[in-house]
Structure formats: structure tokens, C-alpha cells
């Protein structure tokens, strides 16, 4: 029961803060929160691979990009295409991309996996750059209408209203992250963790390692695609440098590391730290990446578990001291 009450309180606090945020912070800050939520969803989807499957992908932008382009192209070419189908189709397209690449991806691990995903990411980047009649090259796809969210008989919500779009994004991202969290608790999620620890043993216990990995690539791709789609809806323009550049792949890796590798919620914390920090630094200098890059190096060297572990370590130390003090009082 204790756990239930704690979770309930956490949800109430979260909903209150998230609900009040746009009214307290104003439009500019609300837009930063939209970016944050989208980025957190993207980072968590990558973390399914990094922390749970144990493979480092340098090409996650591919799925983000497929999602973003799918949304942009659908809305550009099909007049009046509704919002939710666009979002879901973008996720499915990215998931399908993961499935298509999986026969090659499941064969390698370690450095080779990192390089193979880098290669696929760059392939996609260059293809989208070169086939400008479809993708608009570096200028990208722009000028599509953002459809409203129609709930038949109830309301039609205008997505161009920053506050409304903020709520929409938060709901989508929270649902996405919760589904992924649930996934890690399912039997298949357990098998994935087993593959990370010892894939040969998983094989010897009767599981199909490659099929399982293919499922996780598709799932991770799906949610990265959803994040990309949200980006497309938010920005109103999708270009190669915006969604497929190699930095788009590197950024969530930094968020995961800073937040805490090997944990589920660390990447969300890391996304928050990165985005807020960048927003703060940008007021003083154009070169925010220099600071985040340095922070990243410091975290890798000095806090390899990220800030979640740092926090947990502090809590443990605090508890130990309290215990010691209470013992001293008794004595």
C-alpha cells in the first residue's frame, strides 16, 4: 500500500506541475518544455537499446527522421490528414525501418554495432539530402498545415495554440514512456535484459535472440518515430540537418549518460538537465554545445553512473548518517 500511496502522490504532483506549467511560465518557457518532453521520449526510446539491450546506437536519428519526414510529407501532400493517424503512421514507419534493418543489426554487437548504426544513419542523411525532389534537401519540407485534434462530439483542439500543443505533447510523451516502462517489466523485457548480460545463455535457454532483438529495435524505432513526428508538428519544418544530422543521434546519448545509464528514468532527468542548461547558457553565449560537451566529458569521467546514481548515492549516505546519529543518541 505504501508504494501505491507514494506513486499516487508522485502522479498528483506531476500532473499539478505539468498542468500549471504553461500558465506560470509563459509561452517561451512552455515551448522549451515541449522540446524537453519530445526529447525525453526520444532519449528513453534510445535507452531501451543502450541500457536494456546493451548496444550503443550512433544512428538513432534515422528513426527520428523517418518519423518526422513521414508526418511532414503526409500533411504536405494529403490535405486534411488527421492528427492522430499521422502520429501513429510516423511511429509505424520508423518501427518498420527498425524491422527492415534488423536482419543486419542483430548480427553485430559492441563497436561494430555502433559503426553499423552510424553508417545507416549517415546513409539516410545523405539520401534525404540528395533526393531533394521528395525531401526538399537541406531546405526540408515546410508549409504544411498542422491539423487540429478532433475528438468527435466533444471538441476540436487547435494545435497551433502553444498551450494546447504543450498538453498534447505531454500526454503523448507520458503515454509513450509508460508503455516503454511497462515493456521492460514484461517477460520479453526481461529476456532483453538477459541478452544484454549474456546472449549465448539466453540462446541456450531456448529463446530466439535475434527475433527478440528485432522486436526491440522495432519498438525503439516506433517511439523514436513518434518523437520525430512531434518535432515535425511542433516546428512546422523538417530538414535533414534538423532531424537526421549525426548530432541528433549523439544528443540523446549525452542525455542518457548525464541522467544515468542502466536506469529507466535517468534519461528523462538527463534530458531535463541538458535542455534547461542549454536554455540557460544560450542567454550568455552562442556556443552552448561547448559547455554541454565539457559537462558530458566530466560526467563520463567522474560520475559514470550519471546524476541518478549521484542522487541515490547521496540519499544512501544521508540515510546512513541518520542511522548512525540515532544509534549515537541511543548510546
Amino acid at each position: 500500500m505504501n508504494k501505491f500511496v507514494r506513486n499516487l502522490i508522485m502522479w498528483v504532483v506531476f500532473l499539478a506541475v505539468a498542468g500549471a506549467a504553461p500558465h506560470v511560465l509563459g509561452i517561451v518557457k512552455t515551448n522549451v518544455l515541449v522540446e524537453l518532453a519530445t526529447f525525453a521520449l526520444f532519449a528513453v526510446s534510445l535507452n531501451l537499446l543502450l541500457s536494456f539491450t546493451g548496444v550503443l546506437s550512433f544512428g538513432h536519428a534515422l528513426f527520428y527522421g523517418v518519423g518526422a519526414y513521414t508526418t511532414a510529407l503526409l500533411l504536405y501532400h494529403v490535405e486534411g490528414f488527421p492528427l492522430i493517424p499521422a502520429l501513429l503512421l510516423s511511429g509505424l514507419a520508423a518501427g518498420l525501418a527498425g524491422l527492415i534493418l534488423s536482419p543486419l543489426l542483430v548480427r553485430v554487437t559492441g563497436t561494430a554495432f555502433a559503426m553499423l548504426t552510424l553508417a545507416f544513419g549517415q546513409l539516410m542523411y545523405i539520401l534525404c539530402l540528395k533526393f531533394r525532389e521528395v525531401t526538399g534537401g537541406e531546405d526540408g519540407v515546410a508549409g504544411y498545415d498542422i491539423p487540429p485534434l478532433n475528438i468527435p462530439g466533444v471538441a476540436s483542439l487547435d494545435m497551433l495554440d502553444s498551450t494546447v500543443f504543450y498538453y498534447f505533447t505531454v500526454v503523448v510523451c507520458v503515454i509513450g514512456i509508460m508503455i516503454m516502462w511497462f515493456f521492460t517489466k514484461t517477460p520479453l523485457g526481461q529476456v532483453v535484459v538477459g541478452i544484454r548480460d549474456n546472449s549465448l545463455r539466453v540462446d541456450y535457454l531456448g529463446y530466439r535472440v535475434r527475433h527478440t532483438k528485432a522486436i526491440i529495435f522495432a519498438l525503439s524505432g516506433f517511439f523514436a518515430g513518434i518523437a520525430g513526428s512531434l518535432f515535425a508538428l511542433f516546428q512546422g519544418v523538417v530538414s535533414t540537418d534538423g532531424v537526421l544530422h549525426v548530432m541528433v543521434s549523439f544528443y540523446p546519448i549525452m542525455a542518457i549518460l548525464i541522467g544515468g545509464i542502466g536506469t529507466f528514468f535517468g534519461p528523462i532527468l538527463g534530458s531535463g538537465i541538458l535542455i534547461v542548461l542549454e536554455d540557460m547558457i544560450m542567454r550568455y553565449t552562442e556556443r552552448a554545445e561547448l559547455v554541454t560537451g565539457l559537462l558530458f566529458i566530466i560526467v563520463v569521467l567522474y560520475v559514470p553512473g550519471g546524476f541518478v546514481w549521484l542522487w541515490m548515492g547521496l540519499v544512501a549516505r544521508f540515510k546512513a548518517r541518520k542511522l548512525r546519529m540515532s544509534k549515537e543518541v541511543e548510546a
Binding site: 543502450l50 550503443l56 559492441g110 563497436t111 555502433a114 549523439f250 546519448i253 549525452m254 549518460l257 545509464i261 556556443r287 554545445e289 561547448l290 554541454t292 560537451g293 565539457l294 558530458f296 566529458i297 563520463v300 569521467l301 559514470p304
Partner: peptide, 21 residues
């Protein structure tokens, strides 16, 4: 630190970002 290849890749990635910036 014993992070294995992931540690090396991440650190050198960070260095690359910092040099470029």
C-alpha cells in the same frame, strides 16, 4: 573505470564535440 567500449566511445565522442565547438 571499466565501462568497456561504451566508455571509450562516449569519452572520445565528448572530446570530438568539445574540439569542434
Amino acid at each position: 573505470l571499466g565501462l568497456g567500449h561504451i566508455g571509450d566511445l562516449l569519452l572520445t565522442l565528448g572530446i570530438a564535440l568539445v574540439i569542434s565547438e
